[in-house]
Design a protein around this nucleic acid. Sequence first.
DNA 1: CGAAAGGCTCTTTTT
DNA 2: GAGCCTTTCG
Length: 724
Amino acid sequence: MTDILVELNSAQREAVEAISGPVLILAGPGSGKTRVITHRVAYLIKVCGISPRHIMAVTFTNKAAREMKERLYRLVGGQVKDLTLGTFHAICARILRMDGKGIGVDPRFVIYDEEDQESLLKRSIGEVGLDPKQYAPRAIASAIRAAKVRTLTPKDYVERSRSYFEEVVSRVYERYQQLLTESNALDFDDLLMKAVQLFRNSPETLSRYQTRYQHIQVDEFQDTNLVQYELIRQLGGKYGNICVVGDPDQSIYSWRFADLRNILSFEKDYPKAKLILLEQNYRSTKKILETAFHVISASPERKPKGLWTKNESGELATVVETYTEQEEAQFVVNEIERLVNQGKVSLGGCAVMYRTNAQSRALEEAFVRYGTPYKLVAGTRFYQRREIKDIIAYLKLIHNPYDTVSLLRIINVPQRGIGQQTLARLSGWAKSMGISQYEALRLISEPKDDKQSFSPHIARALVGFLNLMEEFIARSRELNLVDLLDLVTERSGYREYILGQPDGEERWENILELRTVAQQYRDLKPAEGLSAFLEGVTLVSDVDGLDETVDAVTLITLHQAKGLEFPVVFIVGMEDGILPHIKSFDDPEQLEEERRLCYVGITRAKQRVYLVHAFRRSLMGSSTVNKPSRYLSDIPQHLISSGGWWQGEERQIATAIYSWDKPSASVPITQGFKAGDHVRHDQFGDGVVVSCQPGKDDSEVVVVFKGVGVKKLSLSFAHLEKVE
DNA sequence: CGAAAGGCTCTTTTT
DNA sequence: GAGCCTTTCG
């Protein structure tokens, strides 16, 4: 019993023991908030005797949920399986599949990701008679999302619209929602909104859930939005045992409508809430914390908060400027190799963080070139690859033939002679009959029907596709997921099709990778396996795939890095225009969010931080010159060790070549060399040192020899003489 | 209908 | 620099 409390400090212990009533925990980075939630749940189960069935814990990512589950397993054993533990979206999806019928949600619904959403939105814009090019789908999508976060139905929205734009949005929103319903699909925001609507419409259902969830904990509370807040308020309505944990300084998702005011609302809605501050940091050195503190406290809006550590003082943050993003990447790789060779850190202990995904390319290239192992947290994210989405579309359609987005995606992939014209006619015809497109296909296949006007060979193509899908649907009732997937890729002709494409081999490998994922669902009953798999692949987050056991450098966006920690952290692209991103320049609130993002990055580090910026960087094809990030100037000089101006290998070589012709008295040398030193080698003759890297028990020297070229030599064998 | 070629616009961050 | 869309031609 006591072992649950024994490893906690007094504030943490207080947070764990405050099990009745609302609790607000404000927890700085590295202060053990995940630990607090985990131990709190364990305490509820083991000490208070609460059944895990009555406990809910909401995390930000599936990975966080999985880790919490593992930790809890160690504390309470097999009982973890009865907990409700997951992201808001996953939990809501489950609620809606169980109980959504009351508000017209069919339990077989599919979930539309952003891409599906965009495609449906474009259609909606067209169908209400507007030009998708004139009304940016993104802007409308964002407005609709904002509406859903406030649980406004299209009807509510119409009543509130005050401007022409809102008028447009309300029309599109209405049609979009209709199309979703017809497709038996929900988008990400629907999952949350519909759950809240369900509870509003059905007090009995709500009461059932309220009775079940006697204890609710929410992690990363600073990044919840209004609809998530409402959901928690509803669920906790009976017992009020709600524990939320967050850090306003780490709020970085306002663009997803996360709202810091939730923290204020919490204090207002639950005036008796117990406030607990976790201020002791166990992660970082004093200097890192101090550096981070200077960055965050330059914010005008912020409430001051304490954060301290007993850890050692540590080393200064290193600020380095390079010429281009390629040299930035080279610097990072070189520095990591150096630290690793010196035994200061393992590859897995290093992370490179950046503001935008596009920045990963230069880094990846450098890592590949130097042969340094790395793991990229989902570049062009796996599940968004075309071939993966295609296969998933087949499976979605098998699961739910009303899914028009998936139908349109694959009806002609591989080509079956079904073109735009045909599709337009099909969808018009289906609409006029008030049936789904899939049902329309079924009608065409019935020989007696001749009202449709498709020419025989086109009708044959359509029916061919229908028969294919019908076969899949029939077989899906008996085949396990892997066999079904194999059947689909074979019989649809997709395998042959993709192998004939450029990069076909690689794309096919990706599908095999998807097959590996499917294997986890192999042993479930056919219908269950398919539905669980589809939900799993739609609700994955990028960090979910991060494998901690692989010893390789992590390449990750600053957003994804939230909640993680590494001994050594490089933040690259420390430039105005990148961090803060140029899009935030005209909005002070967004600039503050960028600052917090920088803060999040620095506080991921346990031992060392590097802040790297490039003088010149190519962005969207063309080259730009950026000033060093304004956040760098918020760090006082005494906390910075300047790595100065760093030149990449090629430019070092160029510099070396320009400085030939020096006098030639030779001096033997036993220690290392530095770049620019003139040397003589028995075999290669005179040269100039480009770099000299200390290794485990030897050093590697790179030298350009006159008339010979560049050679990599090991210091102890090369017999280099220094030439003064 | 479909393949190929050329022109356009963007990229913030993600469940 | 890539992916999307349109246009053009077979």
